[in-house]
């Protein structure tokens, strides 16, 4: 953000739109009556926005959108602690995804898998710290596999969306 009038005028609505979209995903996910019987297991739909963002925006912009989403959703539907869990998962997955993106040779699916898996691991770590108990790691294998599956699905969807966006409305992101 250089404060350039022309860029800001385009970027602010774009950020707002993406944050709103990510918030809707979080909300939809909270509404879904899916229970896996395992603590901390989530679909991670909002991660779709982060993965797409990583391929269309600058990393700093994606981080801003991701953190805004987590804090806003936390205030609206969660509590102070849920923000901490989400932030731990969100930041860890953001760092790993940008890292994998820098290392050449991973497709969006690989990057997204890293995001899904590390998001679950991050939440598990905070849960273990808060509860002062390693008992939660009992579910680590399930959460790893879950992150793998959701990461793959989100990677495939994100890949298709990015392809279309680059083809059609590229000017939105320039």
């Amino acid at each position: 953000m250089k404060g350039d009038g022309e860029t800001m005028y385009k970027k602010v609505p774009l950020y707002a739109m993406l944050v709103a979209l990510a918030m809707i995903f979080s909300y939809v996910e909270a509404l879904l009556p899916i229970s896996f019987g395992v603590p901390g297991m989530k679909l991670g739909l909002a991660n779709l926005i982060v993965v797409i963002g990583l391929y269309l925006l600058k990393p700093g912009e994606v981080l801003l959108i991701s953190v805004l989403r987590i804090v806003l959703v936390g205030y609206l539907f969660g509590n102070g602690m849920s923000i901490v869990y989400s932030l731990a998962g969100g930041l860890l997955s953001f760092v790993l995804m940008t890292l994998l993106q820098k290392i050449k040779g991973f497709s969006m699916i690989g990057v997204s898998i890293a995001g899904g898996v590390s998001h679950n691991v991050g939440q598990l770590l905070v849960a273990a710290l808060v509860l002062e108990s390693g008992a939660v790691f009992y579910y680590a294998p399930v959460l790893l596999i879950a992150g793998l599956v959701t990461g793959t699905l989100i990677g495939i969807i994100a890949g298709r969306i990015v392809k279309e966006v680059k083809k059609g409305s590229r000017q939105l992101f320039d």
């Binding site: 040779g105 991973f106 699916i109 690989g110 898998i113 399930v142 596999i145 793998l148």
Partner: peptide, 17 residues
Amino acid sequence: MKKKDIILIVLVLLLAG
């Protein structure tokens, strides 16, 4: 899907296993 993706998937599966 690239080669490194597959490696990553195998690593996660091994770790989980």
